[in-house]
Structures are given as C-alpha cells and as structure tokens.
Simulated assay, not measured.
Amino acid sequence: MGHDMIAMSGMPGMGGMAHDLAPWSVGRLLAVHPATSWFFLAVCVLAEAAYLTGWLRLVRRGDRWPVHRPIVWTAGILTVFLTTCTGTNEYGMVMFSVHMVQHMVLSMLSPILLLLGAPITLSLRALRPAPRGRRGPRELLVALLHSRYVRVISFPAVTIPLFVASLYGLYFTPLFDWLMRYGWGHTLMMVHFILVGLLFFWPIMGVDPGPHRPGYVMRILELFAGMPFHAFFGIAIMMSRSVMVHTFAHPAASLGVDALGDQHAAGGLAWAFSEIPSVIVLIALTSQWAKSERRVAKREDRKADRDGDAELNAYNAYLASLEARSQGRAQGSAS
C-alpha cells in the first residue's frame, strides 16, 4: 500500500489535509498500512482477547458454550478491523462510497455478528462473583443491565429514532463535514456507528439478557420499522443532483472518480445494504423461535409425564360434563 501513496495535497479532509491516493482496488482497500487507526486496533485486540479469555475459563470449568458464538464474534471483530485499520479507512476519508461501506458495515453488520456472540451472557458466566458485601465486575455489569439508563436507551422508542437520525442528522446537516475535519471527529463517528447499531439490534436479537425482551413478532416489527427510512435515505442520495457533503466535493484527480457519481454509488450501497443484515437477523430470529417452541414442547411433555396428563384429563372431563349437561337439557325439553 505504501507504494500507492502520492504526495500530500491541500485537499479538504481529516484535519484539513488528505492523501492523493491511487484508484481504489480490493487489495488497496484491505491492505494494512502505517495510517491504520491505532485506537480501533487496540479495541479489536482487547475485545477479542477478553472474549477468548472468558470462553477458555468456561472450557476449563467444564461448562458448555456453543462453538458458533466465538466464530461469529471473531467475524464481527474482523469486520471492525477491516473497515477501520486498513486502506478502507484511508479511502473512506476521500470517497463517499467507501465511507458509506464503513458506515453500513459498522452500524449494521458488525453489531449483529458481535451480538450473536452473546458477549454479555459470556461475561456473566465467566466473571466470578465478588465476596459478600463487595461489588466486582460481575456485580457492576448486573447493576448496569438493571439501571434506568440502560432501560431508557434500549427502549425501541429511543433506539429506532436514534438509528434513523444517525443517517439523516449526519449527512443532511453540516455535522458530517465538521466531524471530518478532525481525527477525533472521524473516530467518534465510527464509534457512534457501532454503538447505535448495537443498541438497535440488541433487543431485536434477544441473545443476551436485557431490560426489553418483546415477543418474536414484535422483534420482527421493530426490525422492519427502521428499514423503510434506511431505504429512502439511500434513494435520496442516489437521486440528488448536487454534491451533498463538502468533504467529498473535490476528489483528488489521482482517484479517477467523479464526486456526484461516487455519491450516487454511496446511495446505492446504503439502499442495497439493508437487505443483508435483515436476512441475517430474520434467520437468527427464526432459529431462536423454533428452539423456544421446542423447549416449551419438551417442558409440557415432562410435566405431562410427571402428573399423568392431569391437565389434559381435567380438560377432557370438563368437555364430558358439558356434553352430559347438554344431553340432560335435550332430554328435559323432549319430555
């Protein structure tokens, strides 16, 4: 990647400067180079290490933990790494389409994969309880989950508008250009994408415990409540006849892209990307729903075995009494 860099120029960008980059390619987007985000690199390494440590603690203790959960968690960490610690982050500073890939992945794909890893459940099982009268990490986590703050920010009336506002409030106002002028602003934006995605999908996925656990039908409705706004956002960008954000108004000649054409590509990505996470979430919800129904059926079977189908026998007796009463009325009318 280093050989593809050209001299610095005075084009608008992070901190008022931007790199003149060679035309993008998959190899250049995925290449790790010195301009990587050290903040996100540290976050990815620490998050993966913490998860694997908790998993190994369960294994040593003899507890079962589904193998697919560490896999999807690691996949989620990998998506964060690839969008923030590679050339994608560099090109995302000068190309709207690449930035939109970052936004969509960090807000819609990474959170789903991370939540499927059930990190909260793993933490509650792996962390040791503190001695009586003290509060350790496990007790603090439980207190946080039951706090009023978490109940409010995880409520659908908050998560859905926040998820939608992260699109319209960012790109249809001067806020985006202002944040892109500073390195900390760009990092804060990426962190915001991840957190908003986690808050939006946490109650819907239902893998980890939380203050709001609606039924499966309500979860599906919550999932699709924000998708029309997401699709309209992408269409609005695709149909725009002028450049919306100043940051990407004058791409470097070395990129070989047209600002308006690149913006239309960004809108197409935003419009199409909602299908991928929707399918993943629906598959996960369907699987959870089926498992829940099987658990209920097994529980009812065990109960029937213990009491000899007392509930069914009582119901049959009730039906028999209704039938006998009806026959008695019919005989009385006939006489």
Score class of each variant (00 low, 15 high):
149 Y>Q: 06
145 L>I: 10
185 G>F: 11
188 L>W: 09
143 A>C: 09
205 M>K: 03
152 V>P: 05
203 P>A: 04
168 Y>D: 11
158 V>A: 12
157 A>I: 13
191 V>I: 13
176 F>N: 00
129 P>N: 08
206 G>W: 01
212 H>Q: 04
166 S>A: 13
142 V>S: 09
172 F>D: 03
141 L>F: 12
214 P>G: 09
193 F>I: 06
195 L>T: 15
194 I>D: 08
158 V>K: 12
208 D>A: 04
195 L>C: 12
162 L>W: 14
210 G>Y: 10
173 T>F: 01
193 F>N: 03
214 P>K: 08
182 Y>H: 15
152 V>I: 15
192 H>Q: 15
203 P>M: 03
172 F>I: 03
207 V>C: 11
213 R>W: 04
156 P>H: 14
189 M>W: 14
130 A>P: 00
184 W>E: 03
143 A>H: 08
187 T>I: 15
136 G>W: 03
129 P>H: 08
181 R>S: 10
146 H>F: 05
146 H>D: 14
202 W>K: 01
183 G>I: 04
150 V>C: 13
213 R>G: 04
160 I>P: 01
143 A>G: 14
161 P>G: 00
169 G>Y: 08
139 E>K: 05
168 Y>M: 09
199 L>Q: 08
178 W>G: 09
137 P>G: 11
195 L>A: 15
136 G>F: 03
189 M>R: 10
129 P>D: 15
163 F>R: 06
139 E>L: 07
177 D>W: 08
144 L>I: 08
187 T>Q: 15
144 L>R: 04
139 E>W: 07
191 V>G: 04
181 R>C: 04
144 L>P: 04
206 G>R: 00
181 R>W: 09
152 V>Q: 06
147 S>Q: 06
145 L>T: 05
192 H>K: 12
202 W>L: 01
133 G>N: 05
156 P>G: 11
183 G>P: 05
129 P>E: 15
158 V>T: 05
133 G>R: 02
211 P>S: 07
136 G>T: 06
199 L>C: 02
135 R>L: 10
170 L>M: 09
152 V>T: 14
199 L>F: 14
183 G>H: 02
212 H>V: 01
155 F>Y: 12
164 V>F: 11
142 V>G: 09
194 I>M: 10
141 L>Y: 11
204 I>F: 10
128 R>W: 07
177 D>P: 02
144 L>H: 06
159 T>H: 01
179 L>F: 15
187 T>M: 14
156 P>I: 07
142 V>E: 15
197 G>I: 06
160 I>D: 01
165 A>K: 09
